[in-house]
Amino acid sequence: MSEKEYIVPIGEGVYEINTGDWRTHRPVLDQDKCIKCGICLTYCPVFSIYKEGEEYRIDLSYCKGCGVCMHECPKDAIRMIEEGR
């Protein structure tokens, strides 16, 4: 989207505040179970999942640990692990 059209808080890279330190649980993606469907990326509210080559990865800088990705993953490839463990 061009600069001119940017009138609403929506976008591919709208990162203003580091919400990663709110997290109590972090998502961990098991690449062996992952079927590369991309559902986690679509559902992530803060757009913290990205694709690198064929694999999906999770950027923890902005991940609040909400667990939506774990809930939506059809193959149970994402687990939430308590921070500090």
Partner: peptide, 29 residues
Amino acid sequence: PTHIKLDPKIPMAVDPLTTGDLLMEYREK
């Protein structure tokens, strides 16, 4: 729409946490 359109092929974040200085920009517009 030209200003906004959600498309599953181009995933986007809606309403990320935003600081006041940027929020004021939206309000002014």
